[in-house]
Design a binder for these strands. Structure first.
Lengths: 295, 295
DNA sequence: TTGAGACATAAGTTTTTGATATTTTGATTG
DNA sequence: CAATCAAAATATCAAAAACTTATGTCTCAA
């Protein structure tokens, strides 16, 4: 048995365009430019010697001959897709998968999600947290919000904001005024530092803070070190000591009413930036999401 | 709706290899080298992260996972092929389509076809005659036997034999000995020349023959000119005159017993050569046929 | 009449594909 | 049991296909 088939890529382009009745939408679905689709369809038409679409400036329609071919093609593509489905997974254009840190997801993204779903009710957001850098060349993740130095101008990455670290301690139940506290009054407390998993970034530390503030007495304090913010938060909430927390966290619902700021400087941190996976850069919904993020 | 599919060409390679359980046979079917198929399948395996075939040196078998994918893929390809079938035609590997001149087909090929079908009973030969050069870049014709100057060494064309033109006239019923005849005895006959459709080739002519033979009297003869051999043969058989016929025709069943040679030189003609269409060069049966032709 | 949206066309670049040559693997044979 | 043979894998490189950017055309709507 031998089949005689036109180029398969051209067939795929035709199928998408015929189904969506739009070159541009087909292009988006296949993650290429409309030009590419136009080319492929022209190639197919030339090869078959027939017109598949009627072009009328603004939109396209299938010709009679195109209509005759289309059903079998769609069915065939469905069958192929079905064969690979369980092995290869599905993609849903309405689902956006984002990779970021636990902290960004919990304290920045999460509180704003209500607004997002209000604006884009049909979208589904898939949040995937991990401290390490996730590979964006695969098809698993559409974009990542990463924390680190400001990227080069031409990287195409969108910078969201710069992080700052604020010295805080649990608000004393006794004196619940919203004032600040002097570090000198906290000699019974410990200084809580968190070690970061990513050793290439410099974590904020009380040592640095004392240096920058010009205050004395760093060495008189007891210390507490943690590997993760999870435990550090707990220690902070229990009133064990003072911590340098990112403004994002300090301002969050969970913490804003519980903490009181310690007098002295805030430490500058790195920036959050959005990195879009190459394969997802054409997805309209991904672009919308990035606009919303940075907007 | 969006489908997530591996590269379609890789899918096609997989399908052919899985169906034929052979990389090389799949390669032949798709008109590429086994290397290409091997590449494509490897690409697919890497992408899916699973092994599709079990290799054991001499032959391949589907793995369990390959077996699960295969049916849907075959079905899908069938469906695609079906969609384009009526528009795009079918190819049968057992059918060889040859383009050549009417004369070659009738007087050289036809008498030998019995032998051919005896050797290759399963093949179907499609003979397509035309005096003009048929385009071999299309998929209509597998090979052409063409008449003309000897091709360049590196053209890849196979030369069958050189043609010669022999001066003949109808054997007289009266004197049926197999001797030759002197042109001087034929003053009552006419000289039959045929004009060729392809003006770029020099047709044999009585004028040339007289020049080469050194004989006198060319201008004393009456002449007959035809556009096609069909009419010239008729005139020859009716005994109207003498013609310069190719050895192929003179030796054919139809003519060998009816003609008698006229004394004098034979004229050198061009050569028959086999030109194989690029798309057909890998077809095993086409190669077999060419081997048989050049024999 | 002008501007925006959708597609076509042209030219150049990148990616993918496939060919040649060579090596590896396992079956077959003397 | 080595020698041989066929099929497939691999490496390197060239050719072809696909894609992008830039530009042009056409239609519809304001």
């Amino acid at each position: 048995m031998t089949r005689r088939l036109p180029p398969l890529n051209a067939i795929r382009a035709f199928e998408a365009a015929a189904r969506l009745l739009s070159i541009s939408n087909a292009a988006e679905e296949l993650s290429v430019t409309p030009t590419a689709i136009s080319h492929q369809i022209k190639q197919l038409e030339d090869l078959l010697g027939i017109k598949l679409f009627e072009r009328s400036g603004r939109n396209i329609t299938l010709t009679r001959q195109g209509e005759r071919i289309f059903p079998g093609v769609t069915q065939g593509m469905d069958s192929l897709a079905g064969a690979f489905e369980e092995t290869y997974g599905k993609v849903d254009l309405n689902t956006i998968t984002i990779s970021t840190t636990r902290e960004f997801a919990r304290y920045w993204l999460q509180p704003r999600l209500g607004d997002f779903y209000e604006q884009f009710p049909s979208l589904v957001l898939n949040v995937f947290t991990s401290e390490s850098c996730v590979d964006l060349s695969g098809r698993e993740v559409d974009l990542a919000v990463r924390y680190g130095p400001v990227p080069a101008e031409d990287s195409g990455d969108v910078v969201l904001f710069q992080e700052h670290y604020i010295p805080v301690i649990r608000k004393s139940p006794v004196d619940s005024k919203d004032k600040t506290v002097d570090i000198a009054d906290l000699e019974t407390k410990r200084l809580i530092d968190v070690r970061w998993e990513n050793a290439t970034l410099a974590a904020p530390s009380w040592k640095t803070w004392f240096e920058q503030s010009g205050k004395e007495g760093f060495h008189h304090f007891k210390r507490m070190n943690f590997d993760s913010y999870h435990l550090a938060f707990d220690a902070l909430k229990r009133g064990y000591g003072a911590a340098l927390l990112s403004q994002t966290i300090v301002n969050s619902d969970e913490f804003s009413s519980e903490l009181v700021r310690i007098e002295g400087p805030q430490l500058s941190g790195y920036s959050y930036r959005v990195v879009v996976a190459p394969a997802s850069q054409r997805k309209k919904n991904v672009r919308l999401f990035v606009d919303w993020l940075s907007g």
